[in-house]
C-alpha cells in the first residue's frame, strides 16, 4: 500500500493493496490525512480507490472508519473510482453502503 499525497487536495488516493498486512501503514496514513482535512476544515473529501488492486475485510473496516470519522467532523466523504473487481469485493464484504460511492468531484 502506498499513498499518493496532493497538497491541499481533498482527494486521498491509495494504490496497491489495502489488506491486513498493510493495516498499520494504512492506519497511520489515514490518521495523518484525517487530521490534515479536519485542521483545514475541508467540506468534502473523496477516497480514490482506482489504483487499489486488493482489499480485505480489515482494509475495508479501516477505510470505513476513516470515512465515518470524516463525516463525524462534518466532512462529506465517500469512496470513488472503484474498479469492477474491487467493487465486487467490497460488495461481497458488505461495505457498499458505508463506502457510499460518489461520482468524482
Amino acid at each position: 500500500m502506498s499513498e499518493i499525497v496532493f497538497v491541499n487536495d481533498n482527494r486521498i488516493t491509495f494504490q496497491g493493496s489495502c489488506s491486513r498486512e498493510e493495516a498499520a501503514e494504512l492506519h497511520r496514513a489515514l490518521v495523518c490525512r484525517l487530521n490534515e482535512l479536519v485542521e483545514r476544515k475541508a467540506e468534502q473529501a473523496e477516497l480514490d480507490l482506482r489504483q487499489v488492486n486488493q482489499i480485505d475485510a480489515c482494509g475495508c473496516q479501516l477505510l470505513a472508519l476513516f470515512l465515518e470519522d470524516l463525516r463525524r467532523h462534518g466532512i462529506t466523504a465517500a469512496a470513488c473510482h472503484l474498479g469492477p473487481e474491487l467493487a465486487g469485493q467490497i460488495s461481497l464484504l458488505g461495505f457498499s453502503e458505508t463506502f457510499s460511492v460518489l461520482p468524482p468531484l
Partner: peptide
Amino acid sequence: CRAYLAETPELEDLDPLRCV
C-alpha cells in the same frame, strides 16, 4: 451481505487490527 460498524472509535485511538 451488509457490514456495519458496531462502534466508531476515534480513528487515531484505534488498534488497526481490532475488529469492530
